[in-house]
Design a protein around this nucleic acid. Structure first.
Lengths: 165, 165
DNA sequence: CTGTAAATGTTATAACATAACAATGGCGAG
DNA sequence: CTCGCCATTGTTATGTTATAACATTTACAG
């Protein structure tokens, strides 16, 4: 069994202990917010939990309908404010190509991940790779471009979705 | 003066002959569609021209309002159908992080660009880099992921927008 | 010509996101 | 303690982006 202390995963989607995964993510979030003196209020915390319920990116309106079920009528700004807060704190990422949100695997650290998104099962894995970072920085420098924020998303097929080959 | 036969550019935005840039892009599009036996109809052609009017990504509803001015009432599907066609033919790219569309600099060739998007002037440059491609392919392979479609967008500041330093 | 498939027109609505202002609640200064 | 302030949440309305579904027109092969 792999070590999930860092909530890392890259396609163990089918057979990892996701309860533990959520639990760890929430503990990390609590600690991080405490250390930054920002408030992970019940609403924000609940949104984060809902996003962590799977490794599939979740749409804002999916979160909204879950909240509405649980807590009665809820309006879009409630969700978008929570998402905004969680993004600012680096606790979630937005997947631009899906208009959806996914829990961040390494919220405490530097922040420039690449997302591998399976078009079959829908799961998304956040990976970090020095060679990719370096290649982008180098290319940008060559052109005199100063990079600031990245959106790196690759759609394709994850190993769980093609067991053969 | 650089050679714009390929409609390539990387931040010459302020001082290149953009008329020529559009002209070339349209000629390439015509040839490409002819060779593929697909129809670059007037509507599709006009949408492509509008997108090529600058190197700034253009929103679908911007295109729509231009068309409405020119040709009277136009509905969204008209624009989205043209965009869909142009994407299929590789003549434009969608910038996911902006919900906007930009002309493709190399429509005839293989298709996995990186977009450098200036958050100051709004221009977007499509670049290709073997090292980046390779790093992504390698990383994906390591994880057993089969990449298919990429969204690589880096926001930052282009050289024209910080003349000093 | 004319049948057929591609393209376009038209109407309506879905999906995603934010503006603007009101009400509430946590919490430090006095 | 309590007052006042600012962060947070509630509420209503609307803005922005995109597609479904069906009608009509057009290109063009036979």
């Amino acid at each position: 069994m792999k070590n999930f202390d860092t909530v890392s995963l890259s396609f163990d989607t089918n057979n990892h202990d996701h309860g533990r995964c959520i639990h760890t993510a929430m503990k990390v979030a609590d600690k991080l917010c405490l250390s930054r003196s920002v408030r992970l209020t019940p609403a924000r915390r609940r949104v984060l939990e809902l996003i962590w319920e799977s490794h599939h990116p979740v749409g804002a309106y999916d979160v909204l309908s879950r909240l509405s079920q649980e807590s009665g009528k809820t309006a879009p700004p409630t969700v978008y404010r929570a998402l905004e807060f969680l993004m600012e704190q680096g606790l979630i990422h937005r997947i631009e190509s899906l208009n959806a949100y996914v829990g961040c695997a390494h919220p405490a650290e530097e922040h420039a991940g690449l997302f591998l998104i399976c078009t079959d099962c829908g799961c998304a894995a956040e990976v970090h790779d020095e060679a990719i970072d370096q290649a982008i920085v180098t290319k940008a420098a060559t052109l005199g471009f100063r990079p600031e924020q990245r959106t790196l998303e690759v759609r394709g097929t994850c190993p769980d979705c093609r067991p053969n080959t």
